[in-house]
Amino acid sequence: MRLDKFLADNSDFSRAEVKRLMHKERVTVNGEVVKDPGFKLGEADQVCLDDEPMRAMGNRYLMLHKPKGYVCSTDDPEHASVLMLLEDRDRFGLHMAGRLDLDTTGLVLLTDDGQWSHKVTSPKHDCPKRYRVWLADPLVEDAEARFQEGVQLRGERHLTKPAQLERIDACEVLLTISEGKYHQVKRMFAALDNKVVDLHREAIGPLELDPALAEGEYRPLTDAEIAALS
């Protein structure tokens, strides 16, 4: 790998900034100053920046407990991105593996591994997502059967995929879906002439939101959690 690419991939510096650092003799390889951005690194080479060893970061995987008022986007001029909840050193290069609406809370996954996030979000992989839903009105009696058969969303040509519904009480339910259509949960209950008043995502596939995480907090995924969604 080129030296400038290694440094840019494993720090918050751009390739241009890396080149300036190298010109100032702040980068060494095996104890020797290297100014050539195209220097080819071997697997055993030790790279230092300001005498501090640089190590390959590898892919990063985080779970975040999203609060209301944040968007799973980086291009909304009116609302803060969930990335702003992360420390500066953790934010660099991450994207959201699936989204939640501004007023929805719960589990959001963040990573810099595009193939991994595709497996989480692609409809082809049928990764289930479980939501806790609070409704404005008591749920109709045949809701479970209708969701299992698939419901017709306004503006959609096809029925939704079968969904699992579990009643907690008349106005609180657990809903598990394997799709990610725009505002899907809200639109599914709208098809039953009901309204979602609160929505919280509890799980993605086998991965459940860590109960130790308060809203706005996050932590790295364990190796087992990463593998469970791979």
Rank of each mutant, 00 (worst) to 15 (best):
L83C: 09
G93C: 09
G69Y: 01
P53Y: 03
G98P: 07
C48F: 11
G58W: 03
E87T: 04
L102V: 11
M54S: 08
P67L: 09
R91V: 11
F92N: 12
K40C: 05
L83F: 14
E78L: 12
N59P: 07
T74E: 12
G98E: 10
D45R: 07
D51S: 09
L94M: 03
V47M: 06
P53L: 06
L49F: 12
M96F: 12
L41K: 01
L83K: 03
M57D: 09
A80V: 15
H79Q: 10
H65I: 01
D50W: 10
M84Q: 14
M84F: 11
G58P: 09
M63A: 00
D88V: 12
D45I: 07
A56M: 10
V71P: 00
R89C: 08
L64Q: 01
R99E: 01
A44D: 15
H79A: 05
D51C: 01
D45V: 09
G93V: 05
V47I: 13
K66G: 00
E87G: 07
D51L: 04
K68H: 06
T74R: 13
D103E: 11
D45N: 10
E43Y: 09
L62D: 09
N59Y: 15
S81M: 00
G93M: 08
S81A: 02
E52W: 06
R55G: 11
D51E: 13
A44W: 11
G58N: 05
F92M: 10
G58C: 07
D101L: 03
N59L: 11
C48A: 15
D76H: 06
D75T: 13
G58H: 03
L85T: 04
S73Q: 05
D101K: 01
L64F: 00
T104D: 00
D90Y: 08
G42H: 08
K40Y: 08
A44I: 12
L62S: 05
D75W: 03
H65D: 06
G93N: 14
N59E: 12
A44H: 14
C48H: 12
M63V: 01
Y61Q: 07
P77W: 08
F92C: 12
G58M: 05
Y70F: 14
